[in-house]
């Protein structure tokens, strides 16, 4: 029952998105624009600063993620469909998991565009440890989106939700961004250091467990009016 509801909520979100592709296109374009803006800031005399590539990658993910979260729930607010979802006789936590999976998948697609672009522009070895890099990106995205989905869902009813989402989200998720940046930076070095990246990967997984547990625990009382 639980996983079926989560699966259906995720499939609904993805179906809506595949039909319009609005969030995917705008978010991916925004992420690429972020990369360019930060490249101008962090490239000096034709050469990027140390670890700039990893930093820019995660800044783009965090900013684009905030945008995607806001848009996804704006869509639910538009025709009061979030209320309809909440009225469904199913566990609230399952709805949360479905929403979370939808956003994580969307962000992973955006990252699939971002990573090759970063590799190309900054000449970093993205294929040196492909599995570890994918793991870092997936773990970081889950941690970021876990908190993001919870707060974006709650903010649907708030007046100044566009401003409040980053205000709430960034202080809590900065540890995830730190872990992602340091781990990815270790992989982008020559030669890549899998050991250091593995240590940060463990930290990211730890944060994922804490954030997902806290979110599942608080989603039910938070969404009850």
């Amino acid at each position: 029952m639980f996983f079926r509801v989560a699966w259906l909520v995720m499939r609904k979100d993805l179906t809506v998105e595949v039909r319009s592709r609005e969030i995917l296109y705008t978010t991916a374009f925004f992420a690429v624009a972020c990369v360019l803006v930060f490249s101008f800031a962090l490239v000096k005399e034709g050469r990027p600063l140390e670890d700039a590539a990893a930093g820019i990658l995660w800044i783009a993910v965090a900013f684009a993620g905030t945008l995607a979260l806001g848009r996804t729930f704006e869509r639910e607010r538009h025709s009061e469909t979030l209320r309809a979802l909440m009225l469904a006789p199913s566990p609230r936590a399952a709805i949360y998991v479905g929403k979370l999976l939808g956003i994580v998948l969307l962000l992973l697609v955006v990252e699939a565009v971002l990573v090759p672009l970063i590799g190309l522009l900054f000449n970093v070895p993205i294929l040196a440890r492909p599995l570890l890099l994918t793991g870092l990106l997936a773990a970081g995205t889950v941690g970021f989106a876990a908190v993001g989905t919870l707060f974006a869902a709650m903010l649907v009813r708030a007046r100044s939700r566009d401003v409040l989402l980053p205000v709430l989200l960034y202080p809590i998720t900065i540890p995830v961004v730190i872990g992602g940046v340091r781990g990815t930076a270790a992989l982008f070095e020559l030669p890549p250091s899998g050991e250091v990246a593995g240590m940060w990967m463990a930290l990211l997984l730890f944060f994922d467990v804490v954030f997902v547990t806290l979110s599942l625990w608080t989603f039910e009382p938070l969404m009850t009016e």
């Binding site: 707060f151 708030a158 608080t218 938070l222």
Partner: peptide, 17 residues
Amino acid sequence: FGGPGAEKLAAAMAVFG
């Protein structure tokens, strides 16, 4: 600045804090 219902949002923030 959260408007109505901000107490709950804030409470979630405090749990994470």
